[in-house]
């Protein structure tokens, strides 16, 4: 039988891969958004594993809402990306430093 710790360790590994992807691909905004998606899927796997092992459906409801919010976030993020490309002609993070943050 697969234990709960196997699922939790799997999702933590996926979480760290997504985190490392954000560190590595710092120049490309599209890959940054994809890494955020990967992190969200890892967190959702955590929720579903606990929901299954505790016999409580609330975890799956939470995953439902996380999926909704993530879809909205991707839609707005890609819209901003398209606008940025139209204004600047590039989607490099280094080019978009006009706020000097």
């Amino acid at each position: 039988m697969v234990s709960l710790s196997d699922y939790l360790i799997l999702s933590s590994i996926i979480f760290c891969i997504g985190l490392a992807g954000i560190f590595i691909n710092r120049t490309n905004i599209i890959t940054l958004l994809m890494c955020v998606e990967l992190i969200l899927v890892a967190v959702n796997t955590n929720f579903i594993a606990f929901s299954h092992f505790l016999g409580n459906e609330a975890g799956q409801i939470f995953v439902f809402f996380i999926l909704t919010v993530a879809a909205a976030e991707v839609a707005i993020g890609l819209a901003i990306l398209t606008l940025l490309f139209r204004v600047r002609g590039s989607i490099d993070v280094d080019v978009t430093n006009s706020l000097k943050g």
């Binding site: 234990s3 710790s5 360790i9 933590s12 590994i13 760290c16 891969i17 490392a20 954000i22």
Partner: peptide, 23 residues
């Protein structure tokens, strides 16, 4: 990135190991 990811994985495995969440 690799150092941060490996440290987090090691910590997570210590915390989430089979002693805490095993069968």
């Amino acid at each position: 990135g690799l150092i941060v990811a490996l440290i987090i994985i090691a910590e997570m495995i210590l915390v989430l190991g089979s002693a805490q969440f095993g069968l």
